[in-house]
Amino acid sequence: MTDVVLVLRHGERRESVEKNRRETAERVHDPGLTDRGRRQADRAAERLRKADVGEIYASPFLRAVQTAAPVADAVGVPVRVEPGLGEHLDPERFDAHPELLGRAERVERFPRTDTDHRPLLEPTFPEDAADAERRIGETARRILDSADADRVLFVGHRATVDGVAHGLVGSAEGVEAPPCGVTEFARDGGENGEERGTDWRVERSGDAAHLDGEA
């Protein structure tokens, strides 16, 4: 049974600093990380190297997979790409379901991709914020129903952090999600001989101490 869930938001994305990116981008709605974002991901990987992460699940958006890759290398665990953890498909941001990196290219670029993983939940377009929260929360619960690891890592977006919070503790109020910040949820009980419960609590929110001094 999983007792700890860690949620890592992706690092700084290119779209946030390259204002004209959409005019030349191959996949308009799937920006990757900036150089700074990659450094942030490397810092997060060092932070999580000794976190005893046993399973990693990532949103299929490029910036999330790029963030998950160095963590997977650091802890020696494959990345299971899970669409249900993906970005909120807001019709005000997307005009259709976004085109993402294809599976074959993803596996080639990120060798630690788990090719045996089959998606648990496919998002539908369009969806409002509440729909996205429910979808991500349901995905998190499905993952935990079958997870074998004591500690599981999800890598995604602000919406991923919020959705997991809603799915596990019922609310994302007060939960922060800075780029490459780590939010930790712990299952009540399970220590000092206590029976492990079904309730979850927020242990830490948007912790980005590992990024101190990152320019």
Rank of each mutant, 00 (worst) to 15 (best):
M1Q: 11
H10D: 06
E12Y: 09
R14V: 13
K19I: 13
R21C: 06
A25R: 05
P31H: 07
L33V: 06
D35T: 11
G37C: 09
A41P: 15
G54K: 00
A58Y: 01
P60W: 14
V65T: 07
T67L: 00
A69N: 02
P70I: 02
V75Y: 08
G76N: 04
G84N: 00
P91W: 15
E92S: 00
A96Y: 12
E99N: 04
E99I: 04
A104S: 15
V107Y: 07
F110G: 01
F110M: 08
P111V: 12
D114L: 12
L121I: 02
E122R: 07
P123H: 13
D128W: 04
A129N: 09
R134I: 06
R134W: 11
R135K: 10
I136V: 15
G137N: 14
D145S: 13
S146E: 13
S146Y: 08
L153W: 04
H157N: 15
T160Q: 06
T160M: 07
V161T: 13
V161E: 11
D162F: 05
D162N: 12
G167E: 05
G170K: 11
A172L: 03
A172T: 02
A172E: 03
E173I: 02
E176R: 11
P179K: 09
R187W: 00
G190D: 00
G193A: 11
E195C: 13
G197R: 00
W200I: 02
R204D: 05
S205P: 10
G206M: 00
D207M: 09
A209H: 03
